[in-house]
Amino acid sequence: MNENSEYILETRNLNLYYGNFLAVADVNIKIRRHQITAIIGPSGCGKSTLLRAFNRMNELVPTARTEGEILFNNENIYDPSIDPVEVRRRIGMVFQKPNPFPKSIYENIAWGLRINGFRGSKSELDDLVEKALRDAALWDEVKDKLDQSGLSLSGGQQQRLCIARTIAVRPEVILMDEPASALDPIATLRIEELMQELKKNYTIIIVTHNMQQAARVSDYTAMMMLRNHEDRSGTVIEFDRTEVIFTNPRDKRTQDYVTGRFG
């Protein structure tokens, strides 16, 4: 295990199935540490499926099956000896629709710490909650109402609460599944700004429908598309620095997609 190598995650011949349907085929990409990697592509090409493979959330769908490997710090997270619960603590996830727990703002963050075995004093817990909220750029807005329900916040605040909840348990990677698609433009920009802060300490992989968002926030971009129209399996057709994808992509299909001439 080399914690300081350039790449934090690597997929090897990754095939993701739902039953007999090969949803994502033959993905071989390497995710760089402390960078933001965007996954873009048309609907139904397997972006979210690929994202969920990174923290084994796919397995929650009963028919899901995985072939190949995903190396996390050079260790295969699909090895039988690995418990998905541990994988998910270290590779956190933020969802499309803000989903805070219907508990207090404080509890939303404290709960993750407790179940992951935090055994400190109340004041230590207070400090960790504050730190997480500060890191998620939410502290100033909620510090006087920590006992109010997380559901009482606005959509953008709820999403930042979800980010705070995720970073509180100190993951190494944060997976974001269209984290701003349910938010207004200002709340979206706030999340994007926050991502730039977070990348100093975390590696971020974001799935987005919004190409401008991918262009704005990410360092690397993976372009996904159906391989062909017969098997309807999605795959990564181009993976490069974001500036290359958006100024001079190699693949004609990427070009057509990013210029809006797809379909």
Binding site: F246, T247, T254, T259
Partner: peptide, 9 residues
């Protein structure tokens, strides 16, 4: 129009 790739070039 937020041009990309070819359009931007």
């Amino acid at each position: 129009q937020q041009p990309m790739a070819y359009d931007l070039r």
